[in-house]
Design a protein around this nucleic acid. Sequence first.
DNA 1: TGTATCCAATACATCAGTGTATCCATTTGA
DNA 2: TCAAATGGATACACTGATGTATTGGATACA
Lengths: 218, 218
Amino acid sequence: MVEVESTRRRKTRERLMDAAYLEFSERGVPAASVEAVCERAGFTRGAFYSNFSSKEELFFALMERENLRRVEALGLDIASALPNVSDDPSVLTEELVGEVLERAFGGQALDRRWCLVQEEFALLAMRNTEVAAEYNAFQADFFDRLAHVVRTTLADAGLALTGDPRDVVKLLSGVYEFALRESLLEPDAAASTNRMLSLVPQIVLALLVPLESEASTP
Amino acid sequence: MVEVESTRRRKTRERLMDAAYLEFSERGVPAASVEAVCERAGFTRGAFYSNFSSKEELFFALMERENLRRVEALGLDIASALPNVSDDPSVLTEELVGEVLERAFGGQALDRRWCLVQEEFALLAMRNTEVAAEYNAFQADFFDRLAHVVRTTLADAGLALTGDPRDVVKLLSGVYEFALRESLLEPDAAASTNRMLSLVPQIVLALLVPLESEASTP
DNA sequence: TGTATCCAATACATCAGTGTATCCATTTGA
DNA sequence: TCAAATGGATACACTGATGTATTGGATACA
C-alpha cells in the first residue's frame, strides 16, 4: 500500500481545482455546479466524486492551495521592493511606501478572479464559524508575515510605527481591499481610486515615529 | 383602472421583502430558494410570482428599500452627533471624530444581517455591470451626503481636509467596512478591531488643515 | 345583496443538479 | 506478460426548485 497519491490522481485534482477557480470566480461558489466544474476540466462527475466528496471540499482545497501560493509569494515580492532602505534612510518617502504597499497588496490582490473568490470565502466564513476559523488562520498568517517585514524594515531605517504593526497592516489592507473592490465595481473610476490610495502613504508616514531603542514592542 | 396598488398587495410585497431579508442574510441570495422566502413570509409561491417576476427582482426591490431607509437615516444620525462644534471648535477632539464616525458607519453598518446582504449585493455587482451601476449609484449618493456633512461641519470649525472630502470619506468607509467584517469573522477579537479603529481618529486629524477662505473646493 | 375584480393558493409539468452503483480502461508491479 | 488495483466514465434513481395555468375565496363597489 503506497501512501503517496499517484501523479495521475494529483493531476486530476489540480485540473479540477483549476477549473473550479474559473467557475467559482465567474459564477460564485453557490451557483457553480459540480457538473460545470467537471466539464470545464474535461472530466465527468465520476472523476470528481472519486477525488472530492463535495463541492465544499473542493472549494476548501482550492483556497488552501491558492492561499499557500500567495503567502509564499509575499516574502519575495516585498523583499524585492526594499533593497536599500538601510543604506540610505532618506529614501523612505511617500513614493517608496506606496511602492511597498503596491507590492504587498496590489500585485496579488489585483487579480480580478482572486478577489472574487476571496469574497466568496469571506462571505462563507461570515456565516459559518468553522469556515471562519480557517479563513482567520490564513489572514493572521498573512498579516503576521507582512507586519514582520514592515517592522524590521522600518527598524533598519531607525523608525517604528506608533501602534502595533499588525494593526497598521490590517488597517492598510482594509483600505486596499476597499480600493480593489471599487476598481472592480467601476473600472472607469480608476482616477478616484488612485486619488484615494494616494492618501495612504501620507497616512503611513503620519504613523511613523523615531525608533526608541528601549522595548518598543514586547 | 386604478394606478396605485392596493394596500393588501403592498403589504404582501413588504412581508415578502422582510422574509427575503432574513433568508438572504442567513443563506445568501444564490442559496436562498423562492420557496423558503415564501414559507417564511407565510405565503406560497403563487403569491410570490404574482408580485415579483424572479428572485433577482425581489432582491433588487429589497436593496432599494433598505438603501433608501439607510440613506434617509444618515442625515439625522450624524446631525444628532454634532450639535456644538461651531460653538466651540476646541471640542473637535479624537473622541468626537470617533463618535461621528461611529454614527456614520457604526450604527447602521454594524447590523450583521445588513452587512451580509450588502456583501451579496457587492459581489453580484462585481460580476455584473448593470448591477454595478445600481450599486454604485447608491454608494455615490451615500458618500456624497456623508462628505457634505463632514465638509460643512469642519468648515464651521474653521478646518478643511487636505484631500477631497469624498475621497477621505470613502477611505474611512473602507476601513470601517473592513473592521466590521473582521468583527463578523472573529467576534472574540473585538479588542484587536477596536485597536485598529482607534487609529482612525488620529488619521483623520492628520488630514486636517486650517481652512483657507480662498476657493477651497471649487 | 349581488357581482366583478383582484389576489393568493393549488396543482402540475419540467428541469437541473446530485450522488451512487456499476462498468470499462489503463496503469502498476510481480 | 498477466493479474490486481486504480481511476474515471456511464447510467440511473432521486431530490428540490422553478414557473405557469387554473381555481377559489375575499374584497370593493353598485
